Amino acid sequence: MDFSRVVRVWYDINKRDLPWRSTKDPYQIWLSEIMLQQTRVEQGLPYYLKFTERFPTVFDLANASEEEILKLWQGLGYYSRARNLHTTAKKVAFDLNGIFPDNYKELKELKGIGDYTASAIASICFDRPTPVVDGNVYRVFSRYFGIDIPINSTKGIQYFKKLAEQLIDVENPGEYNQAVMEFGARQCKPKSPNCDVCPLQHSCVAYSENRIVELPVKLKKGKVKQRYFNYLIVTDNQKTLLQQRTKKDIWQNLYEFPLVESSEEINIEKLKEHRVFLDLTEGASYDLTLYNEEAKVHKLSHQHIHTRFWIVTLHKKMKTGIERKDVPDYPVPVLIANFVEDFGF
């Protein structure tokens, strides 16, 4: 069976009507590919529409402030993508006169553009025969050919890339790449794939050997790190405090309330003794209450953030800080955004 032809025929009939599929503009393709990394289409589409409306060209994005970009990105996660997006926009706009490179090698030199994104842009926009290999493609290849090499191992990455190079339709590389990714997303899904109506069913190794569930194979991740965040919502009922996360850590350059990070969950007495708390209260009288007795657990790929919010109401007017009503204007992590909405800022 001609794998590439069958997948393309399926794609012609079943592809979703998505805005970036009606263009070969590298700016729009680049935006969509960066946003859809580790993100479902249903979640990424509203962000794509917001960005293309606010920043219709790479020059508009390049001239925006990082803070505005992070605010629009809020809730999409993996915020380094947004920072890299801004860096590359400025590079293309100011150094390359707004023109994206037309080949894999030069595209891959841009900040935030790796093998997958460079391949996608080069093939879709410039008809270069560069195959894409993402999670969907790994799954389709692994099941169809019965490959049990771990997809996140060095050997697996090299093996699947070579296989993709052999299978790509050199006459229509962009359409083929989109077809195989869409096939994995909608037909050969991670759970409950539609095997009964799959056009590849009769030649699929995983189907014939009843190995659908066990493929693809993935090496287990390392131990998940547990972190304990205690946010201090310091207020005089008019103002409050926000600070920017500037260190190279999660949520870099986003804003948050003053933070006490601990190695385990701490009680109110321990919190009162902490240097951060003492510096914020400066000997003033206050009321201290715990907003959520049960910690909210925010799960990231390699760490779980156990978060509690402490309300510190000062009995004096704050000399510094921001108006409470202005808090929603700042780009913040989604767990902070949820608290801000619940608390009623």
Results as ranks from 00 to 15, higher is better:
210 N>L: 09
210 N>G: 12
211 R>A: 09
211 R>F: 04
211 R>Q: 13
212 I>A: 03
213 V>Q: 12
213 V>K: 12
214 E>F: 07
216 P>D: 03
216 P>W: 01
217 V>P: 00
218 K>S: 09
218 K>G: 02
218 K>H: 02
220 K>H: 10
220 K>N: 10
221 K>S: 14
221 K>L: 10
221 K>Y: 13
222 G>D: 14
222 G>I: 08
222 G>Y: 11
223 K>F: 06
223 K>Y: 08
223 K>P: 11
223 K>E: 14
223 K>A: 09
223 K>W: 05
224 V>M: 05
224 V>H: 05
225 K>G: 12
225 K>W: 13
226 Q>C: 03
228 Y>Q: 00
228 Y>M: 01
228 Y>R: 00
228 Y>K: 01
229 F>Q: 01
229 F>I: 00
229 F>W: 02
230 N>S: 10
230 N>P: 01
231 Y>G: 00
232 L>R: 07
232 L>W: 06
232 L>K: 11
232 L>T: 06
232 L>A: 06
234 V>M: 03
235 T>F: 04
236 D>W: 02
236 D>S: 03
236 D>G: 01
236 D>I: 00
237 N>F: 09
237 N>W: 08
238 Q>W: 04
240 T>Y: 00
240 T>D: 00
240 T>S: 04
240 T>G: 01
241 L>A: 03
242 L>N: 03
243 Q>C: 09
245 R>G: 00
245 R>K: 07
246 T>F: 02
247 K>H: 06
247 K>N: 13
248 K>Y: 09
248 K>Q: 14
250 I>C: 09
252 Q>Y: 04
252 Q>V: 07
255 Y>R: 08
255 Y>I: 01
256 E>C: 14
256 E>V: 14
257 F>D: 05
257 F>A: 02
258 P>K: 07
258 P>N: 06
258 P>Q: 08
258 P>T: 05
260 V>Q: 08
261 E>I: 15
261 E>G: 11
261 E>R: 15
263 S>M: 14
263 S>P: 11
263 S>L: 15
263 S>W: 11
264 E>I: 02
264 E>L: 04
265 E>W: 06
266 I>G: 06
266 I>Q: 03
266 I>R: 01
266 I>S: 05
267 N>E: 13
269 E>P: 08
269 E>M: 11
270 K>T: 10
270 K>V: 04
270 K>E: 12
270 K>C: 05
271 L>K: 05
272 K>A: 09
272 K>N: 09
272 K>V: 09
272 K>S: 08
273 E>I: 05
273 E>P: 05
273 E>S: 14
274 H>G: 04
275 R>N: 15
276 V>W: 12
276 V>M: 15
276 V>T: 15
276 V>A: 14
277 F>T: 02
277 F>S: 03
278 L>T: 07
278 L>N: 09
278 L>I: 07
279 D>Y: 08
279 D>R: 11
279 D>N: 12
279 D>W: 06
280 L>I: 14
280 L>H: 13
282 E>M: 08
283 G>Q: 07
284 A>H: 10
284 A>E: 11
285 S>Y: 10
285 S>R: 11
286 Y>D: 13
286 Y>P: 13
286 Y>M: 12
287 D>S: 10
287 D>I: 04
288 L>A: 06
288 L>K: 06
289 T>I: 07
289 T>C: 05
291 Y>V: 11
291 Y>S: 08
292 N>D: 05
292 N>Y: 03
293 E>M: 04
293 E>T: 04
